[in-house]
Design a binder for these strands. Sequence first.
DNA 1: AAGTGTGCCAACCGCGACTTG
DNA 2: ACAAGTCGCGGTTGGCACACT
Length: 347
Amino acid sequence: MDMAMIGGFDELEVLEMSPGGSAASAATAAATGSEDEGDLRRGPWTVEEDLLLVNYIAAHGEGRWNSLARSAGLKRTGKSCRLRWLNYLRPDVRRGNITAEEQLLILELHSRWGNRWSKIAQHLPGRTDNEIKNYWRTRVQKHAKQLRCDVNSRQFRDVVRQVWMPRLVERIQAEYSAAAAGGAAAVQAAPPVAPATTTASAPPAYQHHSGTYGGGHLQQGAGGGYQHAADYYSYSEPGQAAAMSPDDTSSALRSTLTTDAQHHYYAASAATPTNEGCGGAGGGAAAAGSPTAADDVFAGTSWSELLAAVGREDDGGSSKIGLPDFELGDFEDNIWSLEDLCLHQLC
DNA sequence: AAGTGTGCCAACCGCGACTTG
DNA sequence: ACAAGTCGCGGTTGGCACACT
């Protein structure tokens, strides 16, 4: 937890504030706090409450939240204590912007597992399910809305795979190249590569290799990165052999950073043409459920092939994938810009 | 400078799964 | 085997902060 932040409050008068909150929120807390309602408080946590909780857990450990709440002298439900601890006070909670690597993981894992936020969060060290859920709702769903797509529609998933993820990979790649350039003179590292040419021109760590999505099948070794990649690739659903332990989150992240991510995301995404409409209810089941390997109709196609297959519904029938006639709004980040979509003939 | 809109995030709620007696 | 209690998850909401007009 951010004890420094809590310690930063010198005056007890401001204790009736949620961290990062305000007097207004404190007032709200007082108004809605129902301190007397069943002797249970609700609303924003005060610094005093945080300290009580943290100190109690430090001394006795977590778990048994209802009795913990009583024993710690907190007028909160166990549920509320658990939430506060897990989402905010836990020492290893990571705060700040979701990195490109993390975005990539979230997109990938969500495409596999759907809204299994806690499961996804297990693979992002320090991130909470709540944070990932919020990210999805505020960022990803916003994009879907801009595209007039149902976030669960296959079209939107295609766009994520064919535009957003490549963009993230490029960004990560560029960052690594820049880091490498900063460290050594041997900066022959490839510049951020255009998606369709990546396979041919990427630096070694990103070289294309064939593999089987979900099978951990790697034909080409390229140092430690590939080892991690193997771990990541071979992660399986319960019931299947899982090469990566659930707690090997850093491995998952590293693999995302250091492997043939493009292959991973695009070979894994070999598209089956579909004209499922955007904004309809059609995609709900697809995302609500967790796409299995068998369900992954994108398996087996290189990502450059995939990009070549992308087109619009109204392009005279040449499209392989029925992407909608997007009405583009402003994309606030460079990951997914109008230029990107136009570049890939998605607009 | 004031009003409005939007993004973000902490917290709550309901429900199902699990545990315990 | 069953009921009550507890836990964990996903969905939703309320409100602050900031950007924009």
